[in-house]
Design a protein around this nucleic acid. Sequence first.
RNA 1: GCCAGCGUAGCUUCAAUUGGCAGAGCACCGCAUUCGUAAUGCGGGGGUUGUCGGUUCAACUCCGACCGCUGGCUCCA
Length: 678
Amino acid sequence: MPSTSTTANSLTVILPDGSRKQYERPVTPYDVAAEIGPGLAKAAVLAEVDGQPVDLGSPLPRQGDVRLRLLTKKDPESLAVMRHSCAHVMAQAVMRLFDGVQLAFGPTTATGFYYDFALSHPLSEDDFPRIEAEMQQIIQANERFERIEMPRGEAIQLCAELGQDFKVEHLQTGLGEEQSVSFYRQGEFIDLCRGRHIPSTGHLGTAFKLLSVAGAYWKGDSSREQLQRLYATAYFDKKELDAHISQLEEARRRDHRVLGKQLELFTINQTVGSGLILWLPKGAIIRQTLEDYLRGELRRRGYQAVFTPNIGRVELYQISGHFPYYSDSQFAPIDLGDGERYLLKPMNCPHHIMIYKSKPRSYRDLPVRLAEFGTVYRYEQSGELSGLTRVRGFTQDDAHIFCTEEQVADEFRGCLEMTQTVLAALGMNDYRVRLGFRDTQSDKYVGGKEVWDRAESALQAVCESLNLPKMSIEPGEAAFYGPKADFVVTDCIGREWQLGTVQLDYNLPSTERFALEYIGPDNQPHRPVMIHRAPLGSMERFVGVLIEHFAGAFPLWLAPEQVRVLTVSEKSEGYGREVEQRLAAADLRVAGDYRGAKLGAKVRDAQVELIPYMFVVGEKDREAGTVTVRDRIEGDLGAMPFDAAIAKLRAEIDAKTVRQVAERSAVAVADCENQHEY
RNA sequence: GCCAGCGUAGCUUCAAUUGGCAGAGCACCGCAUUCGUAAUGCGGGGGUUGUCGGUUCAACUCCGACCGCUGGCUCCA
């Protein structure tokens, strides 16, 4: 940086356009903005000094050079800061309206913010209008956000005086290392807070909304107090808020639990049991079509199909280490009374391992790839169950690969490629890959350090060579038995879903577990490495996500009913039935609507049921041997010879074409749970 | 499992004037209509208001327990 004519007692401010300003007196970023122009002074909400976010009102250094950026609501960094300020205003409103409010944490999220409180009044949506009105008053009062720094000891005393026990605890434990901490005050409200904040509540405007209330544990610990969490969001622009709200409505409209009922895809029956899916005929078609497609991919890639039972002796899981360590997420064992106990299988790998062990293996046999659509049962907590995405019985598109250490990279690559192929076939082209590596500080992992180092660098090299989109490495996210790659798919309305997974395993093959071996070229026994992989994860969850992704309008190759024959009047029923039969003979999934209703009504019903194609037949068609094709998306395509119509559909099915009317959105609703560990 | 909210016909479409005879729409069934691209008309059946108990002359409505669902939290080999 070129030196300036700075004297010992002056400050040089360098603006992004390179212009410089010099000050002999103490100034804040706001002062600089005001000097540039009153418009900027009004619009600025935040500053960045030498790359660090700073409040507009905080003093700049007295001397030296600083690079200053003044941020307005147009700068993306401003949004989170504004939302955090809005969280403070919400907390202030809650404290005004209710007595004995204890403040916990109030951070921003990807799409808004929340604040956790302890208070005796149970908050409900009925309270939202009052809280919002009170927030509006605070905003209108245009209270300044004032930053107050003080030593930690004084801060503890202040919070104790304010009766804020959570803050005292946090200062003593979470911030125990800090010398000095900061508070922010607006009006009568003061809160321990790192910041930053916008200059005053007046900058908040009206584009905010309380969304929901929920329970949440203090510090996320289920043994601690349960708090009340208010979720809300805020934008600088009312239009953006409205867009966000219609986004939430769109998500509700696509809810697979509602669509699954309407489209008769699946049902859950209380007498059968919570979290246990009954696939209805139409849903079964989707699942079966997906499975058939995957079976073809598996054959092409050298997998061998196997079948294993739904239960196994407890001893099997004692060897694998899953029992009793994970007993609270398993159904209780079936006890035969003579000391023999069986477990509903919570994962397929021990069974597949026993197939590997059924005969001696040579290095020439490897890799051995065993695949099964294996149904597993896990006792998820009742509050966790949800539609198809969180269930107690589910079928994994599972496979286990047994290979040599040298083959790991190629096999891993094959798994990733298969997952990419499958996702692409389903039009799910927006996903990121999360590499879960070990936390080097932790000792919960099995296998030596050098094995892990080798595995992790091999995985990373493979992933990099495949040019995987948006790859991220997350230390501490590995399974205890090996590193993994998870596919996190973004659906067409911007929500993330953890689906496919590929995991390396050094644990189960080991001496302490199943002691797997193969005979190497040196005629000595060696230990194979295992890979667990499931491109879709589970059929239940994947179909659930597909329903929402397509909003129930499946591409032709997956649609339960591909074509509906509609007769113009009952006079054409004979020809209609003939057309229907010929479609069935051509291996299309078809139904006929021969009711006495008007054509418009039949068209509407088929549209509502999201049938991809309608073949309208009337007397003109009968005479000409044609069908009049209506495309669900494009509408009436006119009459065409029957064979041409079939060829059109056949081509679309064979190409697995995905045609969708869906608008993309940048808003993300995070969902990062993972049910597909092994 | 925890916190909060909600349970009325097959329907996540909903009503019942705050304790006074459970009622519509869609779907379903029947009859009429024979129609060319998003709802033809008329008629009909369908309910122990989630379950059990309590208060009351009287409960969908108020109270309690349980069951289920929803939103979150915790968990997720």
